[in-house]
Design a protein around this nucleic acid. Structure first.
Length: 567
RNA sequence: GGGCCCAUGGCUCAGCCUGGAUAGAGCACCGGCCUUCUAAGCCGGGGGUCGGGGGUUCAAAUCCCCCUGGGUCCGCCA
């Protein structure tokens, strides 16, 4: 409902400014600590019309007509600011809409292809990869919640040197089958790297594997397939533990096999809109026109293709199927992805929107799968879950063991996801076990706990079973304490926040909202008894608890955190 | 060497895109609150030259330039 309120304010303000005899480009409306919405537009008017900003504010407020604006309560000039407040009707309508299942979204006719994670199949996901995973998956959930159709894809780098090294390693070292399969693959990969370092002459063998795979050699293809499928199996298990499921796994070798890669190369040769350079048999693009000082290599001197070229083919494939293409990439891909975008533009292919996140490092330095220096996603989940189990056991000895295990799993998944998503992607982070295992205020369990409290109250009255026709009869206008008003306003902002997060592709906005929402609920919980309230007030407060439960569970669901009914 | 990102209380962060009214949280620290809906909670307290310097502006944590420190990229790797 906040969106409608904002729309009303925009309409009324725009007209009032005109009627006061001014003209502006931007209404400069924003959420303020002093009002529900406030504008600073009078400063602008002051400088262009040479009037004191306070006078402009007063004049605009006098010209303001809000008689057709049921959601606007009060409008006040406060010095140079104009403050807008919601009406009583706004509060009641907001709650009523939520209780009736209208959360303020409309479905949009837009298909988005979103790629995230796409880790190399050379070992398990580690805590750096899952920053990509959590940002990507949360974005997908936000966009879906905002009404878009989203297809989530994982690009499998099966043709690279890493995959080839695993293949080489598998031929010489035994897989430790007692381990989770992707971890066993990592062991082999680390050993293969060491082997190559000690015997550099083996490098040509790797090159050969790559070439034979690209040529479609059956025996080699089968070996690559097996290695990659094994890694992917383990990776998918880890993703599932985080509540993440891709719609499609796209193998880069497909683009070589279908001829898409060679089509792109011949297009480059014929079209000529990007200058082509040949150096010792290798084919490159000269991108100096766009300010890139190094050439962009299309294919190696031995004729084999290169990751970046295959990625061009993949992006063309994505662009054909979606109205928008979104990629979630690590900061190391910044340069290559801007080159990619430039080339796609020249090819007449829709450019991707790229969300970049900075690296996660360990206190002792950066991670490396090759050197076996990393904390795996599985290890992290295991540790957090074990810690959560201790906490659950401490508090809920009354529950059966399976139930406690289930709660611990949900708490662990949530804690990990929230810990990652609450930090904005451009911030480089250092992993910290103490923070990961902290279940206090700025954490998922804090949010889940508030949801459980809502459920607990509702459980005590036998659950919420008010039919839609009866909702209008609930005396919601009794909810007028500061705590109640604040909470209702928070609830009304859900769709507004989702759309902001979707527009700016910033999932951390929703994390902040979730915490603010729960803060407001906790104040209400402390000061406003529900079950012990007088008849009508009790009904109204129960409705507010139900509305909070709805919005909070929607928020948690969108963050990929399970909304627990008890914990 | 060049490009991009980051720097906000002891620690971890929000706010920066779109400049405005007292810079918000959490952890840690100190002091309170379980005979009332789950204390993974709530209340109070101390603690900040928003890395440094210049500039733009009536107004800068927010925009621009320079510097410092950290990260990252600049492969016929992915």
């Amino acid at each position: 409902m906040f969106k409608q309120f904002k729309r009303e304010v925009e309409t009324a303000l725009k007209k009032a400014i005109e009627d006061a005899g001014y003209r502006v480009n931007d209404l400069e409306l924003g959420i303020s600590p002093f009002a529900d919405l406030a504008t600073t537009v009078c400063y602008r008017i002051a400088s262009s019309y040479k009037v004191p900003p306070d006078r402009a504010a007063k004049k605009i407020v006098e010209a303001m007509d809000t008689s057709d604006m049921p959601l606007i309560g009060e409008v006040k000039a406060s010095g140079p600011y104009i403050n807008f407040y919601t009406s009583d009707r706004f509060l009641t309508e907001s709650l009523r809409a939520i209780l009736k299942g209208d959360l303020g979204f409309e479905s949009k006719d837009e298909v988005i292809i979103l790629e995230h994670t796409s880790a190399n199949p050379d070992g398990p996901l580690h805590i750096g990869h899952i920053r990509n995973t959590v940002i990507g998956d949360t974005l997908a959930r936000i966009l879906r919640r905002a009404g878009m159709r989203v297809e989530v894809e994982y690009y499998v780098n099966d043709m690279g040197r890493q995959a080839a090294l695993v293949v080489l390693g598998l031929e010489r070292f035994e897989l430790d089958r007692s381990k989770k399969i992707d971890h066993a693959i990592a062991d082999v990969y680390v050993k293969a790297n060491r082997l190559i370092e000690e015997n550099p002459e083996l490098k040509s063998e790797v090159d050969q594997l790559i070439r034979r795979y690209e040529e479609g050699d059956e025996e080699v293809t089968a070996r690559f397939r097996e290695a990659v499928i094994l890694s992917l199996e383990g990776i998918r298990q880890s993703l599932l533990r985080l509540g993440v499921d891709h719609d499609l796994f796209v193998w880069e070798s497909d683009f070589v096999r279908t001829g898409d890669v060679s089509k792109i190369i011949s297009w480059m040769k014929e079209d000529g809109s990007i200058p082509l350079v040949e150096k010792e048999g290798a084919l490159m693009l000269d991108l100096s026109e766009a300010g890139f000082d190094k050439e962009f290599v299309l294919c190696r001197s031995d004729g084999t293709s290169i990751y970046a070229t295959r990625d061009l083919a993949y992006h063309r494939f994505k662009a054909r199927r979606g109205d928008r293409v979104i990629d979630v990439f690590g900061a190391d891909h910044k340069l290559i992805s801007s080159q990619l975008s430039y080339i796609l533009g020249k090819m007449g292919v829709k450019k991707p929107e790229i969300v970049i996140f900075e690296f996660v490092s360990l206190p002792e330095g950066s991670m490396s799968t090759r050197e076996g220096k990393f904390i795996s996603c599985d290890e992290l989940i295991d540790e957090v879950e074990a810690r959560a189990r201790i906490e659950v056991d401490k508090r809920r000895g009354d529950l059966p063991a399976e139930k406690r295990a289930e709660i611990a799993r949900a708490v662990a998944r949530g804690a990990i996801r929230y810990d990652i998503v609450k930090v904005s992607p451009e911030k480089p982070t250092v992993f910290d076990w103490d923070k990961a295992l902290d279940f206090e205020k700025q954490s998922a369990p804090y949010l889940q706990y508030a949801h459980a409290r809502c459920c607990s109250i509702l459980r005590k009255v036998g659950g919420w079973d008010v039919r839609e026709e009866e909702i209008s009869a609930i005396p919601l206008d009794l909810l007028r304490t500061d705590q109640e008003i604040k909470l209702i306003k928070m609830l009304s902002k859900f769709s507004y926040i989702i759309e902001e997060a979707a527009r700016t592709l910033k999932p951390n906005l929703l994390a902040t909202y979730a915490k603010d929402l729960v803060d407001s609920f906790n104040l209400f919980y402390r000061d406003c008894p529900v079950l012990n309230a007088e008849d009508d007030l009790r009904k109204a407060r129960l409705a507010l608890v139900e509305a909070t439960r709805i919005i909070l569970s929607e928020t948690l669901e969108t963050l990929g955190i399970e909304a627990l009914e008890e914990m």
